[in-house]
C-alpha cells in the first residue's frame, strides 16, 4: 500500500459514506411538488403544444443545454481530428469482413435509416426522440464501414453534412434571436397538439439535432476506425 492507494481508498470510503447518508434524507422526501419540474409538467402542453414533455424541455426550456451538448460533440470531433491527424494515403486497411457481413450490412442500411428517422420524428409525440434516433442513424452509416473497412465513408460528404446541419441549427437560432430578441426562441406557429408540424419550431430543431447527432457519432467512429487501420 502506498500513499496514493491509501488516499484513494479514503476518498472512496468518504464518498460512500456521504452518499449513504444522503440516501437517508433524499429517498423518502423526493415528492417535490413545488419544483420547476412540476411547473413544466402542467404548463408545457398549454405553452408549447408538444406532447412529449421531455422533448419540450430538451429543445425549448433548456435548448441552450442542447446546443452546448452539440458543441461538445463538435469539440470532441475536432480534438480527435487534431490528435489522430491525417490518414496516410498508402496506409494499409483492415481486412474485409467477408461476403455475408457485407451483404447484410448493405441490406440493413435502408432499414436502419427508416427506423432512425421514424424514431426521430416519433419522439415528438411519444417515447423516442433525437438522441435515440440519432444513434440509430449513426449505426446505419457505421455498420457498412465495419463490414468493409477498405471503402470507408467519404470523409468529405460526412463533413459537409455535419457542417450543414450545424449551420442550419445556428441559423434557426439566429433567426429566433432576431425575431424575438431571445436566443433559441420559438419561431413558427403553435399548431394543434399531436400533429408533426405543431409546437412552433420544435420539429425543425428536432430533425436537425437528430441528424447532427447521427453524423457526429458516425464521424467520431469513422475517425477512430481510420487510425486503427493506419497503424
Amino acid at each position: 500500500m502506498n500513499l496514493r492507494e491509501i488516499s484513494s481508498l479514503v476518498f472512496i470510503v468518504w464518498l460512500g459514506l456521504l452518499l449513504g447518508a444522503v440516501l437517508k434524507i433524499v429517498a423518502y422526501d423526493n415528492i417535490l411538488t413545488g419544483g420547476v419540474g412540476t411547473y413544466i409538467l402542467t404548463h408545457a402542453a398549454p405553452e408549447l403544444g408538444a406532447e412529449n414533455i421531455v422533448t419540450s424541455v430538451l429543445l425549448a426550456y433548456r435548448g441552450l443545454d442542447t446546443l452546448g451538448e452539440l458543441t461538445v460533440l463538435f469539440v470532441a470531433i475536432t480534438a480527435a481530428g487534431l490528435v489522430l491527424g491525417q490518414r496516410r494515403t498508402d496506409a494499409p486497411s483492415d481486412s474485409d469482413a467477408g461476403f455475408i457481413l457485407r451483404t447484410a450490412a448493405n441490406l440493413l442500411f435502408p432499414f436502419l435509416i427508416i427506423l432512425g428517422t421514424y424514431i426521430l420524428l416519433q419522439g415528438h409525440f411519444s417515447p423516442g426522440g433525437v438522441f435515440q434516433g440519432g444513434a440509430i442513424l449513426a449505426a446505419a452509416f457505421f455498420v457498412p464501414i465495419l463490414a468493409s473497412p477498405a471503402s470507408p465513408l467519404h470523409h468529405r460528404v460526412s463533413r459537409l453534412v455535419e457542417g450543414l446541419v450545424v449551420a442550419t441549427f445556428m441559423i434557426i437560432c439566429l433567426l429566433a434571436l432576431f425575431s424575438d430578441d431571445a436566443f433559441l426562441a420559438l419561431l413558427l406557429g403553435k399548431g394543434s397538439v399531436s400533429q408533426l408540424f405543431s409546437a412552433y419550431s420544435l420539429p425543425l430543431l428536432h430533425i436537425v439535432i437528430g441528424f447532427q447527432i447521427g453524423t457526429a457519432f458516425a464521424g467520431i467512429l469513422a475517425r477512430l476506425q481510420e487510425t486503427e487501420a493506419s497503424d
Binding site: 419540474g37 413544466i40 421531455v54 443545454d65 480534438a79 438522441f131
Partner: peptide, 23 residues
C-alpha cells in the same frame, strides 16, 4: 408523471460522456 428535467439532463449528459470517451 415523473419529473422531466432530470431526464432531459441525463440525455445531455450521455451525449457529453460519449464525446469525452471518444476523445
Amino acid at each position: 408523471m415523473v419529473d422531466p428535467i432530470p431526464q432531459a439532463m441525463v440525455l445531455t449528459a450521455i451525449v457529453i460522456g460519449v464525446g469525452v470517451q471518444a476523445l
